[in-house]
Design a protein around this nucleic acid. Sequence first.
DNA 1: CTTCTTACA
DNA 2: TGTAAGAA
Length: 130
Amino acid sequence: MNRIDADNKDLYAIADLAKEFGISTRAIRFYESKGLIAPERVGATRVFRRRDRARLILILRGKRLGFSLRDISDYLSLYDADRNQQVNLLAEKVDERIALLERQRDDLETTISELREIKNLADQRVQKAS
DNA sequence: CTTCTTACA
DNA sequence: TGTAAGAA
């Protein structure tokens, strides 16, 4: 929609991507500073191609799933290198993530149970008092 | 008006 | 990451 040039179907300005993905231009520049993306430059202005856009999508998905920019960075770095190693890393990180979430879920359930016990005891005492 | 960099919160 | 400031 807001391509830089109607002829070149895969050039985007930073504002276009920011709007499309609902993030700030600052965030995009931040990801670049962390090495997650490396858009071309026309002078000092960043020019994003489909490749950058695709990586941005992966970055946002990774964040949504709770991965750190570091993890995402490591994963993305392998895109230009060992595609196999990239898959292995992904599997490893996903397992770690799932393990962590399951532990947190267990902790939450334990906490909820304890709170319910306290709640029950409190309710009983209220009954006797009244 | 848009983007860039840099610095500070 | 947001915001601000000054340059391009």
